[in-house]
């Protein structure tokens, strides 16, 4: 049974507007590599120099991978991998 990837709005132009994609992989990085093969440009939106971007949240089922093993977090058949851009911002410090 494959892993289900929930694709955020901002990445859907890469996946031909598909919201959910089923794909095989043993850990988070493997899934991202396989997504990259099928949907070129996908990986660069999530990872730079082997590290996930701080403005992207990746969850396996209900767990943020930052509190697991990061990109090495293992996946089991039927798991869901959800990608959500962090929602953040705010005024800058008034020191310039």
């Amino acid at each position: 049974m494959p892993i289900t990837v929930n694709v955020p709005t901002i990445l859907r132009p890469l996946t031909h507007n598909q919201k959910k994609i089923e794909i095989e992989g043993a850990n988070v990085l493997e899934i991202i590599e396989r997504m990259e093969q099928q949907y070129p440009g996908f990986k660069a939106k999530l990872i730079t120099n082997g590290k996930e971007h701080h403005f992207i949240n990746i969850y396996v089922n209900d767990d943020d991978i930052r509190f697991g093993n990061g990109l090495s977090t293992k996946l089991n058949d039927g798991d869901t991998l959800t990608i959500l851009p962090a929602v953040a911002g705010g005024q800058e410090k008034v020191d310039c």
């Binding site: 709005t9 901002i10 851009p85 953040a88 911002g89 800058e92």
Partner: peptide
Amino acid sequence: VIYHSHTSSSAYPSRTDIEYASEPQ
């Protein structure tokens, strides 16, 4: 709608607001 407050500056997007904005709709 995604909303937030600016507590001591004007209601105009900051550099960080722009950097993080990721919901085109």
